[in-house]
Nucleic acid binder design. Sequence first.
DNA 1: TTTGTTGCAAAACATTTGCACCCTG
DNA 2: CAGGGTGCAAATGTTTTGCAACAAA
Lengths: 163, 163
Amino acid sequence: MNTILNQGIVNINEQSEILLDRESLDEDALKRIIRGVGLKATSQRLHILKSLNRGRAHRTVQEIFEAVQKIDLDIGFATVYRFLRDLAESGYVTEIRMGRQAARYELTPKLHHDHLSCVKCGQIVEFHHAEIERLQELVARNNGFQLTSHVLELYGLCSACKV
Amino acid sequence: MNTILNQGIVNINEQSEILLDRESLDEDALKRIIRGVGLKATSQRLHILKSLNRGRAHRTVQEIFEAVQKIDLDIGFATVYRFLRDLAESGYVTEIRMGRQAARYELTPKLHHDHLSCVKCGQIVEFHHAEIERLQELVARNNGFQLTSHVLELYGLCSACKV
DNA sequence: TTTGTTGCAAAACATTTGCACCCTG
DNA sequence: CAGGGTGCAAATGTTTTGCAACAAA
């Protein structure tokens, strides 16, 4: 629930989105976001955005679709897919792919983070490590690459499942 | 083609598998490998293993299937899938998942490495960075996790595509 | 209006599975 | 010969697409 600092690592739990410095959730702000991505502000997109801002992070398209459908019955699966794809392209949301599961989405955090997840119980811990980030940049530069993004997922057994 | 060392980074190109200190490719050695994984040494599995040892790294199941089929017409897609899944579980091969593409496989290198790939031309550069590895262990330990594996994929524009 | 968007259903993929027959050990 | 292994085809699960109706700018 709280941000814990130890050795430069920030641990953020599943509810982390409530910690983010979000723009206020009024309709106009949301419309501005959608138009900023170059899209028209439809009611479906507004509902999806609201759900992203309010709901759990790390949800699949299916889960987001179901959440939105509870509020607006008249929304299609494809719309959620298409909008999330566009939001991910624009960087407003981040796509997380772990193993062979369906993609999961989260609002792009102000402070970039990676994921550490338990292979047994599925618990996800978010972390940020500045030095790892710096070294990644270095690796890319040393190979003549201009880094655009990266995926770092750590898999292991959490303290509870380790026994 | 050659292993290049700079600042502790090992660059290995697409043909890297020829650099690996492979067990010799005679049938008996291959059979020993298969039995070591707890499986029966069938002709199909031998063909798949040979192809893995001889062919390009980073191939999809589809590509490996097609390569093996040229030699042994009597092989099914599912067999390749099942065997690769088993080999990945045993650690003999490593599964690489980049974005939403199909999984790719490579013989698990003696020296662990990660991937840096160009989002435009698809070129893949392998690298190893001991300090990044060490820091990952540290992150896991600090969160009470026992690390079992990780995925680190860097995406960017290579020097050729950057312009 | 004009142009982008939507829901739906079908298509496209990647991956997995059931099953009757086959082969290794 | 017993128990795994195989090919095939069908099932699954996720993601994408075509299209006619519809709505935002």
